[in-house]
């Protein structure tokens, strides 16, 4: 009975646009859903370092090398403060990291695709960070204070990443014939996976209704996906890159760009672990974690000695 009145008060606060803070009462489902979402978001940042890190040592100029290093470093930083946000909900970072490495925790499927040429780095910045911004701009308004604030900060940096990526794409698109070929190939490969970043269609999205009621999400997967397509189509035409969808067409009734059917079988397969790079991404993370154990042990032992002294 007491819980029910607490729940009503909680929902009234959300309705009034107040932020929920770590020490406030919240329903267990709200806490669980947020832990799931925030830790998935954190894992995505960390796993996302791998495909882009793949090109740091081969970046074609010092300026590009610095830009990419800074971007990947930002992602590690996002991971760190997202793990901190998750910790405000009463989980331990090592616990959620273990769920990623040895359990069933998810991360964004987009990072299970390989980066095959330098054009992939530009394309990821433009499309993948672009899609992430659409999603995170919404999350920056979510009802949970620490996650909302983390996303405000993340969005600022992601905007910079997107500009940087788009500039790489634009430079290559007006470059040599080989560069043009590389950039079109990269866009062909990344376009569809980018659209799946918003999650399954609304009708198949099991968590959405509850998340929207509690204003963890404020827009549906399909709404966000449409917004991203609408933003991206004109950007593609400015740089003269084709988006690989013959059904892409402006709809003057809705004001939206209609687009073709997504391959949801592939999406669900990749989420289940059956994508091009799932195994190698997780293997790289596990190796880093396991090779780092003696380092973490040493730091702990040293700190304990200093405390005892």
């Amino acid at each position: 009975m007491e819980d029910e009145s607490k729940l009503r008060a909680f929902e009234a606060r959300i309705e009034a646009g107040e932020k929920i803070e770590p020490k406030d009462w919240m329903p267990e489902r709200y806490r669980k859903q947020l832990i799931r979402m925030i830790s998935q978001h954190a894992h995505s940042e960390i796993v996302g370092m791998l495909p882009e890190g793949n090109w740091i040592t081969r970046a074609p100029s010092l300026r590009r090398k610095m830009g990419l290093l800074a971007k990947v470093q930002d992602e590690a930083g996002h991971g760190l403060y997202l793990y901190c946000s998750a910790e405000t909900l009463g989980v331990d970072r090592s616990e959620v990291v273990d769920q990623l490495l040895y359990g069933t925790a998810k991360y964004s499927s987009i990072f299970n695709y390989p980066t095959l040429t330098w054009a992939d780095i530009g394309t990821i910045g433009w499309l993948v960070d672009g899609a992430a911004i659409v999603n995170q701009t919404m999350l920056a308004k979510c009802s949970y204070g620490p996650y909302s604030r983390a996303n405000i900060r993340i969005c600022k940096e992601e905007n910079f990443h997107k500009k940087q990526g788009y500039e790489i794409v634009a430079t290559m698109a007006k470059g040599t014939p080989e560069q043009k070929r590389m950039v079109q190939d990269a866009v062909n490969r990344w376009w569809w996976p980018s659209l799946t970043m918003f999650g399954p269609p609304d009708k198949d999205s099991p968590n959405s209704a509850e998340l929207m009621k509690w204003q963890v999400k404020l827009q549906s997967n399909d709404e966000l996906r449409q917004r991203f397509v609408n933003l991206t189509v004109p950007q593609a035409s400015v740089v003269g890159v084709a988006l690989p969808d013959p059904d892409l067409k402006y709809n003057s009734k809705t004001g939206n760009w209609d687009f073709g059917a997504l391959n949801w079988d592939e999406f669900f397969a990749v989420i289940k672990g059956n994508g091009p790079c799932n195994r190698q991404r997780m293997r790289a993370r596990r190796i880093a974690h396991e090779n780092g154990k003696w380092v973490r042990d040493a730091a702990g032992a040293y700190a304990a000695k200093k405390r005892a002294a």
Partner: peptide
């Protein structure tokens, strides 16, 4: 920069990448 994404702990991933960035700069 070869460490990037493979550090022993997240804080060190950030630190090594940051030092790499300073060095290249």
């Amino acid at each position: 920069s070869e460490w990037c994404g493979h550090g022993p702990i997240l804080e060190e991933d950030i630190a090594l990448t940051n030092i790499a960035l300073d060095c290249i700069g």
